[in-house]
Amino acid sequence: MTSSPAKKTAPKKTAKKAPAAAEALVVKSDEEAWTPGELDELLGELNEQREHSAAVVAEMEAELDGLMRDSGDGAGLDQADVGATSFERDHELSVLNSERDKLAQIDRALGRIADGSYGQCESCGQPIGKLRLMAFPRATLCMPCKQREERR
């Protein structure tokens, strides 16, 4: 019996165009411009997170493929076994989708750094703030817009 190969999601390569100059990235009026060192540190962190998430996604897709292949039709299993298997599969799908979302956010942040729009709120257009971006590099909204979104 030949088994079908696990569906692999190859890590998406972001465009290798040069990132915008650190000084060109948006900052709040009371903040200093990004330094090349800060930008390198930020890029390093994002790339490290991306590698980790891509590895997690690949591993989870292989596990999920195994769960789906071995799920059978439930013959010979009692309801508790079927329920546990279903719960495990649903949990794996939820975690996998969360990791895929994180990967997409990282790719978006890297793309915004490359095109020079990193640091600008996608909702209101105001600067997000260096401190927020250093704490959460995937942020796309300034604090007021994020708080407004969370209240909805």
Results as ranks from 00 to 15, higher is better:
residue 54 A to S: 12
residue 81 D to L: 10
residue 46 L to N: 08
residue 108 R to S: 12
residue 81 D to K: 11
residue 31 E to A: 03
residue 75 A to R: 12
residue 54 A to C: 04
residue 86 S to W: 04
residue 25 L to C: 01
residue 60 M to Y: 07
residue 26 V to K: 13
residue 38 E to R: 01
residue 75 A to D: 13
residue 103 L to D: 08
residue 52 H to V: 14
residue 52 H to I: 12
residue 108 R to V: 01
residue 60 M to T: 15
residue 57 V to E: 07
residue 60 M to I: 09
residue 84 A to R: 05
residue 39 L to R: 11
residue 27 V to I: 09
residue 49 Q to S: 11
residue 96 L to M: 04
residue 33 A to R: 12
residue 65 D to I: 01
residue 102 K to R: 13
residue 65 D to W: 15
residue 64 L to E: 11
residue 70 D to V: 00
residue 21 A to W: 02
residue 111 G to C: 02
residue 54 A to D: 14
residue 19 P to S: 02
residue 121 C to Y: 02
residue 23 E to V: 05
residue 46 L to T: 07
residue 24 A to E: 13
residue 94 S to A: 11
residue 45 E to A: 12
residue 69 R to I: 06
residue 78 D to I: 03
residue 58 A to W: 03
residue 28 K to F: 01
residue 90 D to P: 00
residue 74 G to P: 00
residue 23 E to A: 13
residue 58 A to K: 15
residue 63 E to Q: 10
residue 76 G to K: 02
residue 66 G to L: 10
residue 73 D to S: 07
residue 102 K to C: 06
residue 74 G to S: 06
residue 58 A to M: 12
residue 60 M to P: 00
residue 76 G to R: 03
residue 86 S to I: 01
residue 114 A to G: 05
residue 53 S to K: 15
residue 51 E to Q: 14
residue 85 T to W: 01
residue 106 I to S: 05
residue 73 D to R: 08
residue 118 Y to T: 12
residue 62 A to T: 14
residue 52 H to G: 10
residue 100 R to M: 08
residue 76 G to Q: 04
residue 29 S to I: 07
residue 107 D to A: 05
residue 29 S to V: 07
residue 85 T to P: 00
residue 92 E to C: 02
residue 99 E to C: 05
residue 114 A to N: 10
residue 80 A to H: 08
residue 67 L to M: 14
residue 47 N to Y: 07
residue 67 L to S: 09
residue 85 T to L: 14
residue 100 R to H: 04
residue 79 Q to R: 10
residue 83 G to S: 10
residue 104 A to I: 02
residue 29 S to L: 08
residue 86 S to L: 07
residue 84 A to Y: 08
residue 52 H to P: 00
residue 82 V to F: 08
residue 109 A to Q: 11
residue 31 E to F: 01
residue 53 S to T: 13
residue 68 M to I: 06
residue 102 K to D: 10
residue 72 G to M: 10
residue 108 R to D: 10
residue 80 A to L: 05
residue 69 R to T: 12
residue 119 G to Q: 08
residue 118 Y to L: 07
residue 54 A to T: 05
residue 40 D to L: 08
residue 54 A to Q: 12
residue 64 L to M: 14
residue 73 D to H: 05
residue 54 A to G: 05
residue 42 L to I: 07
residue 89 R to F: 02
residue 20 A to E: 05
residue 61 E to P: 00
residue 114 A to R: 15
residue 81 D to R: 08
residue 49 Q to M: 15
residue 120 Q to M: 10
residue 26 V to F: 10
residue 27 V to C: 05
residue 26 V to C: 06
residue 55 A to P: 01
residue 81 D to T: 06
residue 79 Q to W: 03
residue 28 K to G: 05
residue 52 H to F: 15
residue 27 V to D: 03
residue 66 G to V: 06
residue 22 A to R: 05
residue 52 H to M: 13
residue 109 A to V: 04
residue 101 D to C: 03
residue 65 D to S: 11
residue 85 T to F: 03
residue 39 L to N: 06
residue 50 R to V: 03
residue 34 W to D: 04
residue 53 S to A: 15
residue 113 I to K: 07
residue 33 A to G: 03
residue 86 S to T: 12
residue 69 R to D: 12
residue 91 H to T: 11
residue 47 N to H: 13
residue 104 A to S: 13
residue 21 A to M: 03
residue 68 M to F: 14
residue 74 G to C: 06
residue 45 E to G: 14
